[in-house]
């Protein structure tokens, strides 16, 4: 009897192409190559405004990247703590974690971002990009918490029993036996969340954080080339999400190879 890793179904989020999924893999190639080709073609055939736009926004891509990576790392930590809290037998901790998840899930992301950004500004004067990262992480931490909870609960009970019967404490069991296995199970949904976060990070442009979208909006509002600018912005976002979903797909395949 081999123990197969359980998988978690997560509804939304970007599709992650695996080599085994032929349809999606082909679609990925088509979209990625198509987007790159379109962008290049536009830049060389109509340098004004396309080349101008492409040279205007790179620092915005960097900010988008910073916000996404920062938020996902922080969200992973918050999510792990929340997930552990949600399965805790301690009523207070469990209640607190559940309350956090319920409250966050009940408020639109955009509203939370506004709220946390300006609340942080009023209370502890946190710089803008960090505020944006915290705002995104607080939100995604709740979703991540549910992913971790599901991941931990997907590990068969016998694993914990085996560890406990060897004399391990509960925390040793969690740390050495349950979490390493759970991490593997949560990787695909965490990958999904990462892509979703990359896209949702465009919401921080509302906070005057100079991300990819805001750089585009700035360019458009000055040059009045709305259609052209948003074409470029959309293509860049598409290339970014496709690129990262591919990387996540490769990571997933690596992990699924043996064991």
């Amino acid at each position: 009897m081999t123990q197969k890793p359980h998988t978690i179904e997560v509804g939304d989020g970007a599709a992650i192409p695996l080599k085994s999924d032929k349809g999606l893999f082909t679609a990925w190639r088509l979209a990625f190559v198509g987007a790159l080709a379109t962008l290049t073609w536009l830049a060389f055939t109509r340098p004004d405004p396309y080349m101008k736009i492409i040279t205007f926004v790179p620092d915005g891509i960097l900010v988008t990247f910073k916000v996404t990576v920062g938020a996902i790392l922080l969200a992973l930590i918050i999510g792990l703590i929340t997930g552990l809290g949600r399965i805790s037998s301690n009523r207070f901790i469990n209640g607190l974690a559940s309350l956090y998840v319920e409250v966050i899930r009940g408020i639109p992301l955009l509203v939370q971002i506004f709220y946390i950004y300006y609340a942080l500004g009023r209370i502890i004067k946190v710089p803008d990009i960090l505020s944006a990262i915290i705002a995104m992480a607080v939100c995604y931490g709740a979703y991540m918490g549910e992913v971790f909870r599901a991941g931990i609960q997907s590990i068969p009970k016998g694993q914990a029993e085996a560890a406990l019967s060897l004399g391990m404490t509960r925390s040793q069991t969690m740390w050495h036996v349950i979490l390493p296995q759970a991490f593997r199970v949560v990787l695909p949904p965490v990958g999904n969340e990462f892509i979703a976060l990359l896209k949702d990070s465009s919401l921080v442009s509302i906070l005057a954080v100079a991300d990819l979208l805001r750089r585009g909006r700035e360019f458009a509002s000055e040059s009045f080339t709305y259609f052209e600018t948003y074409t470029v912005i959309a293509l860049i976002y598409l290339i970014l999400t496709l690129f990262f979903s591919k990387i996540i797909g490769i990571m997933e395949e690596r992990i699924n190879v043996d064991r």
């Binding site: 500004g121 009023r122 803008d128």
Partner: peptide, 10 residues
Amino acid sequence: LAFEDMVAGR
């Protein structure tokens, strides 16, 4: 929003 950010010292 700019004025609010100025209150926050950003």
